[in-house]
Design a protein around this nucleic acid. Sequence first.
DNA 1: ATGAAAGCGCTAACAT
DNA 2: ATGTTAGCGCTTTCAT
Lengths: 339, 339
Amino acid sequence: MRVRLKDIAEDLNLSKMTISKVLRGQTDISEATRARVLQRVRELNYIPNISASSLRTGQTRTMGLVLPALGVPHLAQIAAGISKTLSREKYELIVSSSENDLETEQKQIGIFLSLQVDALLLVSLQETTFFFEELQGRTEMPVVFVGSRPSGVTEQYVGLDEEEVGRIACEHLLQSGCRRVAYIRGSHSVSGDMRSRGYRNALRRNGIEVQPDLIIETMSPQQSEYQRGCEAMERLLSHRRRPDGVMTYTDMLAVGAMDAASRSGMRIPEDMRFAGCGNDPLLCHMRIPLTSVDTGGQDLGERAGKLALRLVGHPKGKGVRWALVKPKLVKRRSSEGSR
Amino acid sequence: MRVRLKDIAEDLNLSKMTISKVLRGQTDISEATRARVLQRVRELNYIPNISASSLRTGQTRTMGLVLPALGVPHLAQIAAGISKTLSREKYELIVSSSENDLETEQKQIGIFLSLQVDALLLVSLQETTFFFEELQGRTEMPVVFVGSRPSGVTEQYVGLDEEEVGRIACEHLLQSGCRRVAYIRGSHSVSGDMRSRGYRNALRRNGIEVQPDLIIETMSPQQSEYQRGCEAMERLLSHRRRPDGVMTYTDMLAVGAMDAASRSGMRIPEDMRFAGCGNDPLLCHMRIPLTSVDTGGQDLGERAGKLALRLVGHPKGKGVRWALVKPKLVKRRSSEGSR
DNA sequence: ATGAAAGCGCTAACAT
DNA sequence: ATGTTAGCGCTTTCAT
């Protein structure tokens, strides 16, 4: 049988209460007893039963994170950031994946509710607030949205400043001397639209007209991102007036685009500069080191973790609202030098 | 306040017990009552308190998985495989990451023990059995090692047949007509050694002598894997007699090697065939589609999940022992055709 | 400084 | 077919 408080108590001829107090760091215990207890606790390898303590206190010092998928670097960074922040306050993070499925996400949330975690952090797939409004009625558990949010949610949200992503990439290329900056975007998405807005604004602010044919949507879902990058580039190269700078929605699109450009005899960065997005450690250090917008998963996670910590124990609706994390540009050779 | 069994019971003028029985699918309840209860349960959005039920039953229908990192495709596949298998039996998986840190791993294991999960699945960093021997004394919780194991562990282990990884890659290249197969391996590791053995055996079985200078170790940790692949290839190209087939420890090494080979005028696959390892969806669909050994993360996860399910409730030491999952070769253009 | 009693929400075992 | 009792391991409250 597992060691319980009672076992330690009987072993030392003390009451359960004394052991419990020692373990929770209460101060009304003599130093001598404290030492004896701690010693024996270690010897017997006592593991507290969170179920029991949770049942009594309503707390688990544990938070739950639901991600659309494991295996995605950006999401992993978010998780790492949260985990790091929580552990500073002696909270632990447990994760589960919704496998990009809306219903699975709801199920996973249900499990965390059942497990009595102290707060819920969600990189949510839900597009509406419907599910969460229902949730409000059932529980007072704090919920923090990270990186994405159902439309309409404005509180308890930590996100990336997507418009800024588009802006800094474009601004950087312009400052490197580019005049015709193309944007290879992914398929339609809210973040895609916002980055696109940042891109347009940067152009306008620099007195450059937005050219619709320099914005390429790549959405054939059968093709790999690499291929889509290649094809987008080929379309851009077929223009009468070719772009002299290219930014992309993801790093892999940039890798494909750079390859296609190289094959056509373009020199990078001399003839054409590139900026990707994601700052993927694998992809950014391939052939031509790729300038990329770091979408700051770790930062995002840390902010979200802090928000969750502040929410714990606060009556609902109190406390902090939301934060937008700024992306950072990481310059590498693909956009080096200026003209 | 959250809805409890008691609330539903009072609401319907029944006892807690009746509600509990309905929710657990006991059969000694009239259809009429069952229907009433289920209806009200849904209306009130009842969420069971696992802490309470766990305290009573000692079960949570939840298992814990500790990974060295999130964000790694192979590990994510393992997690997905486990999760899929468990959910068929109404078990749930929660995950945590040790961030490649030995002590963090032990801490995460402790949390899962505290949370009373029904079994523990570990892609463990521990190299010795020391920690787990200590664990044995504290708990009867079933532990399954996945993909890696402390030396000496032979039970409750589901792993990849690493020797076979090396063998099938080499065998495939030989069957495609290669006579001088090189192996670009990573830095030293147990799995690296085993794959190397598979490679050597395949050569020998085909009556080809192992040439030490065709085995390249790439271990400069500052460099990216891509660069290390390039450099390894350059070394191979400088040999008097160049290889006509190259296999690598990872897909990224193959991508780098292929690029270096292409730059030197080698045609792929005509002059030189390549096989990577990992079957990374991103990397295998770049420039030249890459033949790769699929290390079957999903399979591994499913087998591990099944093993864990069989272990639950069994007295320790009973039940299944271990399984080795066979890798599968996925052929693509980099090794196409024969001579 | 230490301990006794009660109860968190649930369910096993046993009535009725 | 439904309900009663007791207790899982812990902590809150209130003695001593």
